[in-house]
Structure formats: C-alpha cells, structure tokens
Design a protein around this nucleic acid. Structure first.
Lengths: 203, 203
DNA sequence: ATCCTTATTGAACATCTGATCAATAACACG
DNA sequence: CGTGTTATTGATCAGATGTTCAATAAGGAT
C-alpha cells in the first residue's frame, strides 16, 4: 500500500515545508509527528524514517528556518553609503522593517529562542546565528566610532553592535506582543536620534 | 487517608511555590500536574482541586511571578537625581543589572513571553505588564527630552521609552542565550553613550 | 460525641504522544 | 520479466498527561 517514492532530499524538503506550516500555525507545541505527516499527506512512520527522532525534526526545522532567511544581509545599496552613521541608520531601518513585518517567521524563531534556554543543541545553533548577526553590525559600528571618535566616549564597537542588535530584537518583540501600542515610526526615529544626532532626511 | 488540611490561600501559595520550582528547573514544558504535586508532597488530584484546570495553574503562576517581582520600581534614590539624563542612565543600569542577574526568573518570563504569542490570555497579561514597564520609562524619557530639546530631533517620549525597554530586554536576552560573548559593562557603556553623550563618571 | 462540610487521596479513564516494526509495493537493475 | 533493495504504510506499543471521581478522613460546628 506504499505510495510513490521520492529522493531523500525531495522528501525531506517536503516534510520540512509541512513542518513549517504546522509550527507556524500551531506553535512548537503543536508540532507533532502526526500533524506533520498529515499536512504532507504522508504517513507518520515516514516522518521518523527520514528524521530518526522528533528532536532531529525540530532541529532540522530550525536550520531550515535560518537557512531560508539568512538573518542579516547587507546589500550593496547599503555598503555603498559613504557616511557611516547614515549607513548604520539604513541598516537598522531595514532590519526593523523586516523583523516587524515577517511576524510569522519571527514568532517561530522567538519560540525557538525560548526553547534554546533549556536545550543546549538549540541554544548553540542560535548562538552562532546571533554572533553572525552581531558581527555584521560590528563592522558598521566600527566605522561609526572611527568617524566620530570624540562623540562616543567609552563606547566600543562590540558594545555598540550589541545595542544595535537589541534595538532590532526589541522592535520585533514589541511589535509581536503588543502591536497596538507599538509605533514603529516613532521607534525608528528614537533609535536613529540616539545613534548620532544628525538632522534626519525629511520623513 | 487524606493528610492535614490547610486554608485555600495557604495551599495555593504552597502549590505555586512548588510550581515555580518545577517550572524554573524544567521549563514550562516540564510543568506538569504530577510534577507540581510531587514537589509539594501532595496528591495530583489536589492540584486540580485548587486550580480547576491546568491552564489556570499556568496563568496563576504567571501572575505569581509578576507579583513577586513587580517589574520596575523607581526607588527614591533615583527619583531624587536632578539631571534627567543621569536619572535615565541610573534607571537603565539598575534594570539591566537586575535583568542579567536574575537569570532564573528571566528565563521563565521569557518562556511565558513566547507562550503569549499563541495564547491570548497570557498575551494580555504580558501586554499590561509591558505597558506598565514602558510607562515608567516614559516619565523619565519626557524629562530628558524636555531638558535637552534641541539635541533629540524628532524623538518622542514614547519612542525613547520603547527604545529604553528594548535595551533592557535585549540585555537580558543576550545575557541569557550567550553569556560568553556578552559583556554587560561594554553594553552599558554603549547604551549610556548613546542616550546623551555626557562624560561618564570614572569606571 | 456526633454530624457535616470539604480538603485530600489515589486509582482509573481517555487521550495524545513518540517510537517500533512487520508487511507491502515502488523502483532500479540485470 | 524476475529480483533485490528500500521507501512507505499503518497498526501497535509504551509511556505520559490532563481530568474525573468515589472513598476517606480532618476539622469545625452543634
């Protein structure tokens, strides 16, 4: 009674897509072997044939998530900007917009984040991603500090990068939990106003 | 075979204490009726006698958590500070220190936060707490903007307050997930350096 | 002492979960 | 066409979990 076969890669991808749909609707709690199988129109046994245990499916879904949105990409349009402060502004703006629009994916990543608190394997995966993210900001932060040495006394590139990361995460989280009281434009203005008080382009 | 009785309030408190111990060790996933009963040395049936359903226990534990650390308290030592910028600095420092030291409680709150994404009742509870928190910062933020009008163009009190909240949460989260790469002193300096570039007291 | 309310117990039930596995058919290959 | 490999199925198991409930005793009231 088996159905048509498929290559390992194809089936895994199909199952991961199903897993994402399930998890993004029902959360990580609702992510069950049977639910994934059902969503994919396949049998429960098959899910565990391709992912030996459930936690391997959960980890694979996290990898899939991170792969399908490599978290920070600095497009040429940004790296071409001359003024470092304005470059940081633009980068922050881009990331906050993305984080606060992509609510579905952000929610799921948020759940993984909380899960990482207890499960070392998940935590490690998130650590490296967070590092990658922070380092991308660090480069721009270095330029900012170099170009305006006197202004930021005692501020290190790492510190500034960590703060930038917080601003993005904080934006995503507040937009997720309490969208009504959260005005993203105001938030952006405040964030940019802090990181170098330069008359902003008309808004 | 029943054991000694207790008043409703006492038993609830005892069970909530047990629930906290279980949840802070095993996470919200590990928070099970039997585990709570076991930790309290009572029977599983009794847990559901006092909290009719499990999700009521979960909600009660969240209330208990929030009650036992009313999230932001502005002590007189802070409200007495004259300079608004320095007042904001001190408040930020206090909150970041607390958030990054109290890791156990912070972790649990973080899990509730993620849970709120899916469960409206939890989310609402967190919303009001987040509002309370943000409003406390808003007052100080207003003073800062009033005292240095020219410096922060286009920055509103709400925006600045939201950013301050992000800085605290971001600090807590980064300290939780990746304590190795997270230097809190650097982070503090960077955050303070942004919120008003004033020569810091020697560090 | 006796009664009555009720807090407490622990067994039992129903459900859901991850996991196992023998049976089966799809497919590649000779 | 025949044969062997293996992807697929679905029933099944074992364990955990939330919830119910009859039985029981504890403690206050009379």
């Amino acid at each position: 009674m088996p159905g048509t076969k498929a290559t390992e890669a194809e089936r895994r991808e199909q199952l991961l897509n199903a897993a994402y749909e399930v998890a993004s609707r029902k959360g990580l709690d609702g992510l069950t072997v049977r639910a994934v199988a059902g969503k994919a129109g396949l049998s429960p046994g098959l899910v565990l044939y391709h992912f030996k245990r459930k936690d391997q499916l959960v980890r694979a879904l996290l990898d899939w998530l991170l792969r399908s949105t490599s978290l920070l990409q600095v497009p040429e349009t940004i790296s071409e900007i001359d003024d470092p402060v304005e470059r940081l502004h633009t980068l922050l703006r881009q990331e906050m917009d993305r984080a606060s629009s992509d609510t579905g994916r952000s929610q799921l990543l948020f759940e993984y984040w909380a899960l990482g608190t207890r499960h070392a394997a998940i935590r490690r995966r998130i650590e490296v991603e967070m590092n990658r993210y922070r380092l991308a900001f660090r480069e721009v932060a270095e330029d900012v500090l170099r170009s305006e040495m006197g202004r930021f006394l005692g501020v290190t590139p790492d510190g500034l990068a960590a703060v930038a990361v917080s601003l993005v995460h904080g934006c995503a989280v507040q937009a997720m939990i309490d969208p009504k009281h959260f005005d993203i434009a105001e938030y952006l203005d405040a964030a940019e106003g802090l990181v170098g008080q330069i008359p902003l382009p008309t808004r």
